[in-house]
Nucleic acid binder design. Structure first.
Lengths: 157, 157
DNA sequence: CGCAATTCAATTGCGCACAACTCAATGGCG
DNA sequence: CGCCATTGAGTTGTGCGCAATTGAATTGCG
């Protein structure tokens, strides 16, 4: 079944603790650097993720944004409302399907793309890792994510 | 200075997007599995991290818990209050230093450790990765975290 | 066609993360 | 000794993440 059957619970506890500590720490360390880099763009990190998608696609229904970022409407609705209040996107009900809401960048939202141009370079530089290592990291993360999503963990221990 | 100087902004944007997407997705995928595993212990993932530290140390001031988990009092105070309300820990002002609050597990809190025994094994199994790969992942994450923490990123682009 | 099931966005409620602040206790320095 | 900077918890306010629910539009099936 697993490759861990031979290890003692105590060892697994230690490894588990290290993994979850490390992942948590890395996630928040990235968040901290992004926060500084994005501050004077007026964007939070999740808002930046949404803008990245919109810069690439031009316009998307809320549903599609959620699929790309694995976010649901409970997270996206207020986030998009704030982006709209900041003048960066417009939201309007689709004509063909009145349930759907299409989000598109305003001219100001599109213009922000230029100002964000240096963010990736500065972020990658801050990681201190060469591109190959970052690619390896990404590969491991994606494998883990796919496995975890597929895991169908049983609720009852 | 960086190893990325030769790459076009467009490429960097793509890599940056992939890295941050992947890290975000992995972090939340872990969170989802932990949520299921911890549900009937009545713990959230951050609460589990705190209990892990307390199970190991027996008792700690809030300050030390925060150092271990990189969390500040704004996060820990309400979290610990909830753990206390659940009967898992007790908080009391230190005698030597009245500013400090010592947190220790109650008997129920300590007893929970047994019921949590299978969590690490099940989590590691859900990742679908052999222990060596998980160790490699942890190594990369720790290197990135250390670099990001040391980066001293300039606020103004 | 008409009704039930499904889909999409929005809302509510709870917990975490972080910044900014308050307040009391402590320690250092003249 | 007395004052002031520092330290440790706590509080407030904002935003994200997720579960659960609502409500309207659409689809599907008899």
């Amino acid at each position: 079944m697993t490759t861990h059957s031979g290890m003692a619970d105590e060892e697994l506890l230690r490894l588990d603790r290290q993994i979850c500590f490390s992942l948590n720490a890395a996630s928040r360390a990235f968040g901290g650097v992004y926060r500084v880099l994005l501050r004077d763009l007026g964007l939070t990190y999740p808002q930046y993720l949404v803008m990245l998608v919109l810069w690439e696609e031009g316009e998307l229904p809320v549903k599609r944004i959620g699929e790309r970022l694995r976010l649901d409407s409970g997270t996206l609705s207020p986030l998009l409302k704030r982006l709209e209040a900041a003048g960066l996107v417009r939201r309007e009900r689709s004509a063909e399907d009145e349930r759907s809401v299409t989000v598109r960048p305003t001219p100001e939202g599109s213009a922000l793309r230029e100002r964000a141009g240096q963010v990736p370079r500065r972020l990658l530089a801050a990681t201190g890792l060469p591109v190959e290592d970052l690619a390896a990291l990404r590969g491991l993360l994606d494998r883990v994510t796919a496995a975890l999503d597929a895991a169908e963990v049983e609720p009852a221990p």
